[in-house]
């Protein structure tokens, strides 16, 4: 082979490399900013969650229906395929998803650097630091006056947020003084202020698998999550409504939290 042939091979190689990389970098500039939407679709196994009317069966063989289901999502982080991480600014990173309020099912993260996102993580609940701040640092969904009645997500006698709240009824639940057979799980516990106690702060990391969420200046991808209530009952310990109809701030709550971290999975992504 002569010098010319060598030269043309190298030239082709260099050119195609250039071509490939430019293809990869396609339409966006890393300094662009866009939005990313996360959808929380609450389900029970293979069924959609229908408050009050839907009936479901857990692994303990108990039939139940759900009257209230809500949870905090916070401290969201996103990661691109090339390993860039975007940490949503802390004070804009608190959300409350309430099954009975459709507008809370999708949350929009603004100012996300353009990129191809393939992973994300979030806390189910509220981080311990925010749990200890004074009321001026508790605004929006964290305002202790934001929710009343059954929607309340704050323990005032034992300062701390409730992370996940689910209530409903089951024929297997013992009859209460009001004649109803209810179960009530109010799960919280950030680890304690001056003495350690239960810590139910759970971080969920989710890979998008082969899918990519492409954030661009003018394109907002939607990451659809399925949140399976059945996983709250069925997991490393199967929760029985009959034996634990009411779980609030108590050691048993750890079992439910260990289960519910697995509720979340990526279903599909719209670009």
């Amino acid at each position: 082979m002569n010098f010319k042939a060598y030269f043309s091979i190298i030239a082709v190689a260099v050119l195609s490399l250039l071509f490939i990389t430019s293809c990869d970098k396609e339409e966006f500039n890393v300094n662009d900013k866009g939005n990313l939407v996360i959808e929380f679709d609450n389900i029970v196994g293979d069924k959609d969650l229908q408050l009050d009317t839907g009936t479901y069966v857990n692994a303990a063989g108990e039939t139940f229906s759900v009257s209230l289901f809500q949870y905090y999502i916070s401290n969201i982080k996103l990661k691109t395929e090339d390993g860039r991480e975007y940490v949503v600014p802390q004070d804009q990173s608190y959300f409350m998803i309430q099954e009975h309020k459709a507008h809370t099912h999708s949350i929009t993260i603004p100012n996300v650097p353009a990129g191809n996102y393939t992973e994300m993580s979030f806390i189910i609940g509220v981080d311990s630091l925010r749990n200890t701040m004074d009321p001026s640092q508790r605004t929006g969904v964290l305002d202790v006056a934001n929710y009343t009645g059954e929607e309340k997500m704050y323990w005032s006698w034992n300062s701390g947020y409730i992370f996940v709240k689910i209530e409903g009824s089951s024929p297997q639940a013992p009859q209460g003084p009001d004649g109803q057979r209810k179960f009530r799980y109010h799960i919280g516990g950030f680890g304690g202020y001056s003495s350690p106690t239960i810590n139910n702060i759970k971080t969920r990391e989710l890979s998008f698998g082969s899918q990519v969420a492409k954030v661009r200046k003018d394109k907002t991808p939607e990451v659809h999550l399925k949140v399976d209530v059945l996983k709250l009952f069925n997991g490393s310990s199967n929760i029985s409504i009959a034996s634990n109809p009411t779980v609030h701030f108590a050691p048993f709550s750890v079992n439910i939290a260990n289960n519910y971290v697995h509720m979340f999975k990526v279903d599909h992504i719209h670009n």
Binding site: T132, D134, A145, S156, N158
Partner: peptide, 27 residues
């Protein structure tokens, strides 16, 4: 029992406790 760790957060409890003032803060 030391359940509340900031004086500013304290009043929420008596106001919302059904045996004390039985009201809610937004109201």
């Amino acid at each position: 029992d030391g359940g509340v760790f900031h004086l500013d957060l304290f009043a929420v409890e008596p106001i919302q406790n059904p045996n004390e003032m039985d009201e809610n803060l937004p109201n």
